[in-house]
């Protein structure tokens, strides 16, 4: 039995002037997995993920989501389809509350006339939802859901961002360097969050520079090199130093039949 990939990219090309950021690259994300994307600086790992979520538009190639071709022109369209992105720079508004941030751009309005005519927000419902989601992910160490995000620590902020993504993602979540700015303990918390989210059945694309983190949570590792998918490896069969060697071109990738182009469950 073959499992249909959630995301399937074929021959994606993106040029910026004379620079080819993505050079006929492929991309696959399968249900229920954590796919790490690693690559040297400038290899184009951010670019390919941006092309998938509509932050940039690919010049050539095809992207299918659950088998249907998509042509996103903005991340908002991807979001409407249930694709959530956790950005490196967090994308939280510091002065707004946790609840306000979780519902940014998709606020709930009160039922009846107060909501439809006077556009009044249903703050109670939003606060309850936010509190439930944070508790679900074991994040309720914050004092109040109405606390401004700027009063939270870096790890707590990242927690809010992950909780927001987990709460609204229907298809998959993209995480861009979620642990880059965090300390050891806070990173650990975020890695646990990633596993919690996966256990809920939501696949994750994890872009990271941090090999220990990648090898800990990823089911497959997509190695990007010179704008292309260079190899997809099983982190259980390869060491970190080998992955880095493949990524930097110091070592040839394993032959295709030994790679992990589809997850074990689907093969």
């Amino acid at each position: 039995m073959t499992i249909e990939p959630i995301v399937q990219g074929r021959g994606i090309v993106k040029r910026y002037g004379h620079v080819t950021a993505i050079n006929h690259s492929d991309f696959d994300l399968y249900p229920g997995e954590v796919l790490a994307v690693i690559g040297d600086n400038g290899a184009g790992k951010s670019s390919i993920v941006k092309a998938i979520c509509g932050a940039v538009q690919a010049d050539e190639g095809e992207i299918k989501i659950e088998g249907k071709p998509v042509h996103f022109t903005s991340p908002l369209q991807a979001r409407e389809m249930g694709i959530e992105i956790v950005y490196q720079q967090l994308a939280l508004s510091p002065a707004l509350s946790i609840a306000d941030n979780m519902f940014a751009g998709r606020e709930l309005r009160k039922p009846g006339v107060m909501g439809s005519v006077f556009r009044q927000l249903d703050k109670k419902a939003m606060e309850k939802f936010a509190r439930d989601k944070l508790t679900e992910l074991g994040l309720m160490t914050v004092q109040s859901i109405n606390q401004a995000v700027e009063t939270l620590s870096g790890g707590q902020r990242q927690g809010v961002a992950v909780a927001r993504a987990a709460a609204f993602a229907k298809k998959f979540i993209i995480m861009d360097e979620p642990t880059a700015a965090l300390g050891v303990k806070e990173s650990r918390r975020v890695l646990e969050l990633i596993q919690d989210v996966r256990s809920k059945g939501i696949p994750i694309i994890l872009i990271s520079h941090n090999m220990p983190h990648v090898f800990e949570v990823a089911d497959r590792v997509h190695i990007h090199r010179l704008g292309k998918r260079h190899a997809v490896v099983d982190p259980a069969k390869i060491s970190m130093s080998e992955a880095v060697a493949i990524m930097t071109g110091a070592m040839e990738p394993p032959p295709v039949e030994e790679q992990q182009l589809v997850p074990k469950a689907a093969a």
């Binding site: 992105i85 941030n101 940014a104 751009g105």
Partner: peptide, 9 residues
Amino acid sequence: EAAELSGME
């Protein structure tokens, strides 16, 4: 920028 990234127009 954060407002845009979190989905506000």
